[in-house]
């Protein structure tokens, strides 16, 4: 089989950052869950950390073009994302795994990933190959023709990762992808993330600090809808002192930064 490199793959990119947000605000219901943040992300694995209710999911949903920004500007791959205009070009290059991954129970793994590939406008000829590659990447090739309802929670999560990868996205948004994965699977998942880091802008939201330490090139700390910190895991480690709570340097850096922000009602 001959494969050709398409013109779009060789074209120089016309943007500086895969994701470029200025003063971005997003509402979740009535609340402003993301409140005027400036964020620039290039290729690499960006770990999005923060306590529950910090606005991580809302930010990821906005980046996935599911929620529209309530204020500020958001540019992805050089295209403006907002109410008007065509978002198809951006959406074709996005892979998205939501926190609550819904699926059709009666579909087999292959049928489901194929359906997602169709929705993502993967060219019809390339769908079978792309689906097989995505399923193999998450280690489900031997279960590809089983129905989704027969899979365990961790396997369903991996199907979620496969459907996000099926269109070879340039921006990959994963909301709590490691929930439900056992320790061995989590290790393999981190390897997968590292293998994507060179070419893809990966945003992973998590509240497991060790995920960030192991796989992320960059940490974004988020609290009450605002950006508290952006930098490398090393820099976050350096912030924590011995008096801060936590078992690892990264934990201590995390709690040092969160202790300095104002606590709001509803936190524990």
């Amino acid at each position: 089989m001959k494969t050709f490199v398409g013109a779009s793959e060789l074209a120089p990119k016309t943007y500086a950052w895969e994701i470029d947000a200025k003063g971005l605000s997003v509402r979740a219901g009535r609340r402003r869950a993301v409140d005027g943040i400036d964020l620039r992300l290039g290729t690499g694995v960006h770990g999005l950390l923060g306590p529950n209710g910090a606005g991580k999911t809302t930010l990821i949903r906005a980046l996935a073009t599911v929620l529209r920004p309530a204020g500020g500007s958001l540019h992805m791959l050089g295209h403006a994302v907002g109410d008007a205009g065509d978002q198809r070009a951006v959406r074709r290059a996005i892979g998205y795994l939501p926190q609550e991954f819904g699926y059709y129970r009666r579909f087999t793994v292959r049928e489901f990933v194929e359906y997602m590939a169709w929705l993502k406008e993967v060219p019809k000829k390339e769908i079978p190959g792309a689906v097989q590659r995505a399923v193999e990447r998450v280690g489900l090739a031997d279960r590809a023709d089983d129905r989704m309802k027969s899979l365990s929670g961790g396997m369903v999560r991996r199907v979620g990762i496969a459907q996000a990868l099926v269109n070879d996205p340039r921006i990959l948004l994963l909301d709590e992808p490691t929930v439900g994965l056992d320790p061995a699977q989590r290790l393999r998942f981190r390897e997968l993330l590292k293998s994507l880091a060179d070419e893809t802008c990966v945003v992973v939201s998590t509240h497991l600090v060790e995920d960030v330490a192991a796989a992320c090139t960059d940490v974004i700390l988020f609290a009450d809808g605002r950006l508290v910190f952006q930098g490398t895991p090393r820099e976050l480690e350096a912030i924590g002192g011995p008096e801060d709570i936590g078992g690892s340097p990264l934990d201590r850096g995390y709690s040092a930064l969160l202790a300095s922000t104002d606590r709001e009602a509803g936190t524990w």
Partner: peptide
């Protein structure tokens, strides 16, 4: 949720 983020939506 995932359908809404796809180009065909």
């Amino acid at each position: 949720e995932i359908t809404a983020a796809t180009p065909r939506a």
